[in-house]
């Protein structure tokens, strides 16, 4: 059954060879590569310089100021960063966010992958299932979702109804500091549609003959999953992991509307929600910007770790840097 991986790997090795051909021709191609590379990324690059870079630099500057949005920012050095250390609500938000990211992201990804595999089929009616599983993800973060979700986790809601069926005691989900964050985590898992769809598109790209070859080798379902599906899907798994992690750290809307400003006792005070409160409710935009840049540092570090690890487990048909 390892043959199929071997088959896949050898392909990438073969791809690596033509790169090391004649030198001179390569150089000319290199120049044209530089140019066409910039040509192709130019839409993004122009947007970066015109629309993105300036606000980002501005927010970096604001992180070192006191800025109430109405009068000019006043330089305050590292005051905002020092304030963070003593701010107990800040640390509550850090705790809540880490808890959320570590629980919600794996749950969401595993769920998304499992359902994607379930729906990667040509059975009749699979289109309807796809729509039904995707549906929760299109209700997004509207007021209606908040009400709906509070309803599901309400004291007389659906979740408690099922708990009662198995004889478990009633839980005050939204009011108990130990459980409130789980309403957000489960909401994130419930809205797994976007990673699911990406997984599904990825699964559809895996050539069927790999499975056929493995079947001839006598590989079972589990073996096929680990030797073909996962390695072939790894670029997409990697993408989903990176993006969902980033999005987990900057999650905001759901916490704002569902658990109402981080209640109870700041246990659902996600990091960006706290930034929002400080920046727009207390008019401390400078402090908010400082928090945002610390967050950027943390996310960048985590992402860097993920990229570092990717060389061990992400398998590309075409090697990077060809």
């Amino acid at each position: 059954m390892n043959n199929s991986v071997e088959l896949a790997r050898s392909r990438s090795r073969r791809a690596a060879q033509p790169a090391a051909r004649r030198r001179v021709a390569l150089s000319r191609r290199e120049l044209s590569n530089h140019l066409s590379g910039y040509l192709f990324i130019s839409p993004w690059l122009i947007g970066f310089f015109v629309f993105t870079l300036i606000p980002i630099l501005a927010s970096f500057y604001l992180a070192f100021t006191r800025y109430d949005t109405m009068s000019a920012p006043v330089w305050s050095g590292t005051e905002n960063f020092e304030k963070m250390i003593e701010d107990t609500r800040y640390w509550s938000s850090v705790r809540a966010t880490l808890y959320y990211v570590m629980a919600a992201i794996p749950l969401r990804l595993i769920f998304a992958l499992a359902v994607a595999m379930l729906l990667n089929s040509d059975r009749r009616g699979v289109g309807i299932y796809r729509a039904m599983f995707y549906a929760p993800s299109i209700v997004g973060g509207s007021v209606a979702v908040a009400v709906m979700w509070r309803q599901v986790f309400g004291t007389e809601g659906l979740v408690n109804f099922f708990l009662a069926l198995v004889g478990a005691p009633r839980v005050v989900w939204l009011g108990d500091p130990a459980t409130a964050i789980w309403t957000l985590i489960i909401l994130a898992a419930w809205q797994f549609g976007s990673p699911m769809l990406i997984f599904l598109a990825g699964l559809r790209q895996i050539p069927a003959q790999l499975y056929e070859a493995a079947a001839i080798d006598g590989a079972g379902r589990v073996a096929k999953f680990f030797s073909i599906t996962l390695p072939m899907l790894s670029p997409v798994v990697f993408f989903n992991l990176v993006m969902q992690t980033i999005n987990g750290f900057i999650a905001f809307t759901q916490a704002l509307i569902v658990t109402d400003n981080g209640r109870p006792l700041d246990t659902t005070l996600l990091y960006v929600l706290y930034i929002y409160q400080r920046a727009f409710q207390n008019l401390q935009m400078g402090y908010g910007a400082a928090m945002a840049w610390v967050l950027l540092g943390v996310i960048a570090f985590v992402t860097w770790l993920l990229f570092k690890s990717s060389s061990r487990w992400v398998f590309y048909e075409s090697k990077e840097g060809e």
Binding site: H34, Y38, A292, L296, A300
Partner: peptide, 29 residues
């Protein structure tokens, strides 16, 4: 396509910049 298939000067730098833009909460922008 540019990022994935063409090897050009500064590609990794711009790719990193691109990812970084995703990490800053919009609230401060």
């Amino acid at each position: 396509f540019g990022f994935a298939r063409i090897r050009f000067f500064g590609r990794n730098f711009w790719f990193t910049c691109m990812l970084l833009t995703l990490m800053l909460p919009v609230q401060v922008l």
